[in-house]
Design a protein around this nucleic acid. Structure first.
Length: 253
DNA sequence: ATGGTCGGATGCCGA
């Protein structure tokens, strides 16, 4: 099974890119983030025509997540948000597909270390940990796909001297990510592959993509019954006109 | 037009 995660940064703008990429890459399951649209206008018809069923947890302007499954796979037992964590922001959706429990998560960016948004990020990650603890108990085969807004190691940024200790690369953020792994999840990237490139996000500013000034902040975390046979960033959509600032990441189970 | 980029809304903010 081929699973993927992609922060599309506006599904309205990126729908043509998504449709082209689905036809090209043929993933079985896709987690999307930053839809920036509400469920009422989610493009179900266009995706159905492309062979994909979708469930969404949308929000206007900010956030919004979805899961796609390629027919004949079916998304079932859908749940939205983090139970017990009061939050108007739409950042989590989960479903079961072909015996696999899949979560699409858009972790808070956090803006700057020490800011109010940073505190919210750490609270969100703690609530996510509690939620995944329960998901894992109920569903041994669990894949948590998304934009975590955390670069796990210094090697996951293009310029550790600039990034270390700052937002996306601070020790408390990394500890929160490690706490998710400690539940019994493995970052598919850390399985022994030799990918050409590891970065999944490049800032729009300062020609970040052209200069490969990237970070690895999009992750596919797998429970131990699962194992990845491959891991790769597909940079093709990042090269198109009007791209998302993130590239899709694909893993074969 | 909103500084430097983009998306979305109109609060220039959030990423």
């Amino acid at each position: 099974m081929k699973i993927a995660t992609w922060n599309v940064n506006s599904l309205n703008v990126r729908l043509p890119h998504l449709l082209g990429w689905l036809a090209e890459a043929q993933p079985d399951v896709v987690a999307l983030q930053e839809l920036k649209l509400v469920d009422e206008v989610f493009p179900h018809a266009a995706l159905a025509e492309a062979g994909y069923q979708a469930v969404s947890n949308g929000q206007k302007t900010y956030n919004g997540v979805a899961l796609l499954a390629r027919a004949p796979l079916v998304l079932e037992d859908v749940s939205r948000d983090l139970p017990g964590f009061e939050d108007p922001q739409k950042r989590v959706i989960a479903a079961t597909v072909g015996g696999l429990r899949v979560v699409s998560v858009y972790v808070v960016n956090g803006q700057a270390v020490g800011s109010e948004k940073y505190e919210y990020k750490l609270r969100f990650l703690a609530a996510l940990r509690d939620y995944l603890h329960g998901e894992l108990a109920a569903h041994p085969q669990l894949a948590v796909l998304g934009d975590y807004n955390i670069a796990p190691t210094p090697e996951d940024s293009h310029d550790p001297a600039t990034w270390e200790g700052n937002i996306l690369c601070s020790p408390p953020e990394r500890a929160a990510l490690q706490a998710l792994l400690d539940l019994g999840l493995v970052d598919a990237y850390t399985q022994p592959f030799l990918p050409d490139g590891r970065f999944t996000w490049w800032d729009y500013r300062a020609a970040g993509f052209r200069r490969n000034l990237g970070l690895r902040i999009d992750h596919l975390l797998l429970s131990t019954p699962l194992s990845a046979r491959s891991w790769k960033v597909d940079t093709a959509p990042r090269r198109l006109e009007r791209p998302s600032d993130h590239a899709p990441v694909l893993v074969e189970l």
